[in-house]
């Protein structure tokens, strides 16, 4: 049953998202693209682009979209695809829900212990490595089929990093350049 598996996979993804939306992207990529092969690397790249250009948290956007695409790729009907996106979105927030509510209950204990904050700090290098790997895995021959792809990457990096351009405009600019030159 695909929905069951989808639900379980996103439950795991939600549970292990230490370090925000980009860490979640890395986990979705690993679980859905690499391990299960439910969507292609190229589809994942497009989903990330759309998730970043759309209002709302990147993690929720991409979970919803991936939840839609998995049944779609298997040839299910549109209604099943919508059910898939509902499954993925709910599953991805359930672990947060349980953990945050538990912390709420034990609020005063947690307030002073700092155990979790310290754990997070110590896992920081792993999270950085995870996100760097997510970017690295996207450098596939299909995504970089032409030397101009590398120019687009460099241009996007410079405008985002040095000029702090809003990601939406960088995505739109990349798309418009693509329309003009390919």
């Amino acid at each position: 049953m695909v929905f069951f598996e989808l639900f379980y996979t996103f439950l795991i993804i939600g549970l292990f998202t230490f370090g925000g939306g980009y860490a979640m992207l890395s986990l979705i990529q690993n679980q859905i693209v690499v391990e299960k092969g439910w969507i292609t690397a190229q589809q994942f790249t497009d989903i990330v682009a759309i998730s970043q250009a759309t209002p709302g948290p990147v993690g929720i956007n991409s979970a919803t979209y991936v939840g839609y695409m998995v049944p779609h790729n298997m040839g299910y009907s549109e209604l099943s695809c919508i059910a898939g996106s509902v499954c993925a979105t709910i599953a991805v927030v359930i672990p947060s829900f349980i953990i945050v509510l538990t912390i709420c209950r034990l609020y005063n204990k947690f307030k002073n212990s700092g155990l979790f904050t310290s754990l997070m700090k110590n896992l920081r290098p792993v999270v950085i490595g995870m996100i760097a790997a997510a970017a690295g895995i996207l450098i596939t021959p299909e995504n970089f089929f032409h030397y101009s792809s590398w120019l687009l990457l460099t241009g996007a990096f410079i405008s985002c990093y040095f000029f702090k351009t809003n990601p939406i405009w960088v995505i739109v600019a990349g798309g418009v350049i693509g329309l003009l030159i390919y």
Binding site: R124, V127, A135, L138, L153, A156, G178, L179
Partner: peptide, 20 residues
Amino acid sequence: FFKGVRPVVVALIAVPVIDM
């Protein structure tokens, strides 16, 4: 459009890595 967007996505993920 997406052929142009895909390389950009790599940059958009790389930038937060450097910030972190």
